[in-house]
Design a protein around this nucleic acid. Structure first.
Lengths: 343, 343
DNA sequence: ACACAATGTCGAATCGATTCGACGAATCGA
DNA sequence: TCGATTCGTCGAATCGATTCGACATTGTGT
């Protein structure tokens, strides 16, 4: 492996000169620059990351803390990881995955070993010990998803309240008068997850401002319970003509239940998804509010990179930097009006 | 941030002694060991990763090259990334994501900068330039998925031939006599992807050895084309009673088509999935052959870690280390026998 | 009592890049 | 022609941990 010395020797200059050519932090004559560049090319030289990091105290690495519920996966997480990595590369950063179940110990290791310059925390939980550990050490971090339990840390989130409200408004605008909103699962609501609470708030807002009949039904993580709640909601008379869904993990099961109830989508029942991404629908032409994964990833990386070199959080009382992303409908997914004019 | 010098000072010993206590590579008296341990604890000392790497030429990092089709995601990839990270931690390694679209340049950067000790390549494509670049530089690597285009590199794969054969055999054993096998998509087959070819081979094998009527139908990445192929296959008379599916990306659409044809699953048509993982079914009780993500991840990490310190590939002619994983049915998913006895 | 081995600890060199101060040569004004 | 600048390059110190050889100190055998 070629080192900076080899390059210097080959170019007939001092190692420091090579460094200056590469970093551009001092004026170097045209001739020398060309000679050094040639030597770099010929030897296929790459600076050793560890040496650079040791000297400069910058690793150009972001640590991405992925939430882990043992034995349970969410495709979304991996998608975010990929997009976050892409965004980080755009800022000259690499991303290392932190998937340890022992989140706190892992965060301490990251902060202590200097293996990363900042952290991105996905899906912050209610009493997130990881965030607390980071604040304690003053390690720079940014959150993907809001959390009242990590005050002072920069965050990014989809505006779930606006997203649900938008979905309901659009459904009403398409002509529907009796709409069921299937919220997040009960356990997510009682765990006070940000997306669950804000989504619910959006539904209440839309219900209040609209003359249409909007019923809010909590979803469930258990297929049977979900099925029961759904059947009950659809059995109301006059029958609802549209279903707006925020809880997408069991979407296939949901559609099975609808089919089992003898309803066709979208002729008998329009189905609108909130916060979904393409994988969710698997080729089905369902209208939906996009989960802007790429945009959220870019934003959270920008915040994390911006926090590098700072003490990681803002004094209590002040607003940390943040970004609340406006929802929008996925292109090419119109909501089907109800078949017979609602009375 | 505490350094080894601080710890040494506090414990009243030389820095080298601290190092020996931590690494255990030399005999140290009980007393000193206790004193050093205490100092480490009190200062919350963590060795600086960059210094360690610089000196020892080992980063204890694996680079995970994620396949990128721009704008296209596969939930599977993220799931593998998480499981690979878990497995790596078990060996004392961290995982950095390499998602660059310019795969070759990224591989060169990884190999040149010493930021990782070995690479794991996911879903190796037909003429994989990344693998070639790695072989060229002699960088240690292991592949997730077989590829004839990366000879000499260690690999891990599900035995897709056995998986498809097993699914068909089990379907026959459940009493089905007329079975449709929906293979990988045409473009995957013509791109000569390993899983597509081996799956097809498994179907042919099962068709040959069984007296049941097994029809092989190629799938498609385009929903409309897939729908046409499926309708045609189901229209055969006497009607098929079971559908074995390897191409899962459009599964929801597939099930819609079945429903649209007026068939109930599984009463009118048993559906069996090959190489799926829980996310695919979203709460549906479909029988399926598991995609052993965790097992594959553990195996590929073991190979990659084993390759650290070697020149990365095996002399041509010799077999590289590899692992072909035997398929098995997911628990709790029996295949429903056909409703009326087949004639 | 004396040579000699074993034990535990230390000092110094090393990994490779960055960066500050210094120094020789070229350039300028008077 | 001489002192003052400016320009381009160099040498050396530095980041923090590892590791080899050396050196006390204690223990063993005769």
């Amino acid at each position: 492996m070629a080192t900076i010395k080899d390059v210097a020797q080959r170019a007939g200059v001092a190692p420091s000169t090579v460094s200056y050519v590469l970093s551009g932090s001092r004026k170097i004559s045209e001739d020398t620059r060309i000679a050094v560049r040639a030597a770099v090319e010929e030897l296929g030289y790459h600076p050793r990351a560890s040496a650079r990091t040791l000297r400069s105290a910058r690793s150009h690495v972001l640590a991405l803390a992925v939430p882990r519920v043992p034995g349970k996966y969410r495709g979304t997480d991996g998608t975010f990881a990929i997009d976050i990595s892409d965004a980080a590369r755009g800022h000259g950063y690499d991303v290392v995955l932190i998937t340890d179940l022992a989140g706190v110990a892992a965060m301490r290791r990251v902060a202590g070993s200097g293996m990363a310059d900042a952290a991105v925390l996905m899906a912050v939980e209610e009493h997130d010990a990881r965030a607390a550990a980071l604040r304690e050490t003053g390690f720079p971090a940014a959150l993907l998803g809001r959390s009242e339990d990590a005050p002072g840390l920069p965050w990014v989130d989809l505006d779930w309240e606006a997203a649900v409200a938008l979905a309901l408004r659009e459904t009403v605008a398409a002509g529907h008068r009796r709409i069921v909103f299937l919220s997040s699962a009960e356990h997510e609501i009682s765990a006070r997850r940000g997306y669950a609470l804000h989504g619910l708030a959006g539904a209440r807002l839309a219900a209040r401002e609209s003359t249409a009949d909007i019923r809010i039904v909590p979803s469930s993580g258990e297929p049977e319970k979900l099925g029961r709640a759904l059947r009950e909601a659809l059995a109301a008379r006059p029958a609802p003509t549209a279903l707006v869904v925020q809880h997408l993990i069991l979407l296939p099961h949901l559609l099975d239940e609808i089919a089992a109830a003898g309803l066709r989508v979208p002729e008998d029942l329009a189905v609108v998804l909130v916060g979904s991404f393409p994988d969710d629908v698997g080729g089905r032409p369902l209208p939906r509010i996009e989960l802007p994964v790429t945009e959220m990833s870019a934003a959270v990386v920008r915040l994390a990179v911006g926090a590098v070199g700072t003490d990681g959080s803002v004094p209590s009382g002040e607003q940390p930097p943040h970004r609340l992303i406006a929802p929008r409908m996925a292109t090419g997914s119109a909501i089907r009006p109800p078949s017979e004019p609602s009375s």
